[in-house]
């Protein structure tokens, strides 16, 4: 219980630090009215907008009122179109969730079986092929992969749409672009984790007890091999979100990532901040869930955590 409490406190602190960091760094960029309003506007109108957006107050006052507003769920108003920033971002969440979720599923569905097969046939040609493919997979920059896919499937073969969303055909290339490097990474992690476990003494015990290969893998090896893979999964969420920004830009996928690049280009402060806090929140929650899953999968951690609680 105490363990959960400290984890939660830590997560909240991290979140608060991100909010603070982002707030101050972005305020360093100068007066948003200079960027957002037309050049020929008179100073009175400019002042009006400064007051409207609260930019005339000292920065610490702005910071505290911003924090206070955040706690009440108020993320401010988009400079561009005066819509509620949170609503604007929230509307895009399903699209991004669909993309990242599909990509993650693809990567797990490809990576884990490949890793298991490579580990079971360690040092055979199968292992070598899987490992070679995986090195290619995670060395491939996702923005380049996306462009290659567009070149081949949209411009030459003309079988898939190069941009937009709505149908399953739209989802295939972006999800593949985002998922393949993760599939490659999961294949490697699963393989090394499986090899570790297969070398353990309880695996030899299982074999000597006469358990068949399938039973050995499913019952004994997999749950133990899953532990490091789950940990990696949690740490990869940040990478996944970063990849989503690029993928959405390449394929004009109308999710949070594309909203971020367009808001960043237009210097729409409230929207950018809202997106970052949302993404940081996602990452922090993912890390916490990873910790929990880790404890659930590995009883030793649970016991250790209890003994370590003060």
């Amino acid at each position: 219980m105490i363990w959960l409490l400290t984890k939660t406190l830590r997560a909240i602190t991290t979140l608060w630090l991100v909010v603070t960091f982002v707030f101050f760094v972005l305020r360093l960029s100068g007066d948003p009215t200079l960027v957002l309003l037309p050049d020929d506007i008179d100073e009175a109108t400019r002042d009006f907008y400064r007051q409207l957006w609260g930019l005339d107050r000292p920065i610490m006052v702005q910071y505290w009122s911003y924090l206070g507003a955040l706690l009440q769920g108020d993320f401010g108003i988009s400079f561009r179109n005066n819509l509620d920033a949170f609503q604007l971002v929230w509307d895009r969440v399903p699209k991004t969730a669909l993309l990242t979720g599909t990509a993650l599923l693809i990567s797990l569905a490809i990576g884990i079986p490949l890793g298991i097969i490579a580990a079971l046939y360690r040092d055979s040609w199968i292992d070598r092929v899987v490992m070679a493919v995986s090195v290619f997979g995670f060395s491939m920059p996702n923005f380049f992969l996306g462009i290659l896919l567009i070149l081949v499937f949209s411009l030459n073969l003309r079988v898939l749409p190069s941009s937009g969303s709505g149908t399953w055909a739209h989802l295939i290339m972006p999800a593949a672009t985002l998922g393949i490097s993760f599939a490659a990474q999961f294949a490697r992690y699963t393989r090394s984790s499986m090899i570790d476990v297969l070398n353990k003494s309880y695996m030899r015990t299982a074999r000597s007890k006469g358990a068949g290969p399938l039973r050995r893998v499913n019952l004994h090896a997999l749950p133990n091999a899953a532990i490091p893979v789950v940990t990696i999964l949690g740490f990869k969420v940040g990478e996944l979100l970063g990849g989503a920004v690029i993928t959405e830009t390449v394929f004009a996928w109308p999710g949070i990532g594309r909203l971020l690049t367009s808001s960043v280009a237009a210097r729409d402060l409230a929207v950018v901040q809202c997106i970052m806090i949302l993404l940081a929140f996602t990452m922090v929650v993912a890390n916490m869930l990873t910790d929990l899953a880790y404890g659930w999968l590995d009883p030793r951690v649970r016991v250790g955590a209890k003994a370590g609680a003060r």
Binding site: T14, F21, V25, L26, G238, E239, G242, N287
Partner: peptide, 21 residues
Amino acid sequence: VDFQAAMPWFIIALAILAFLG
């Protein structure tokens, strides 16, 4: 270290670069 690992640095970098020029 934990803080750095827990924040979406690529995305923050993107925003910093856009706003700080």
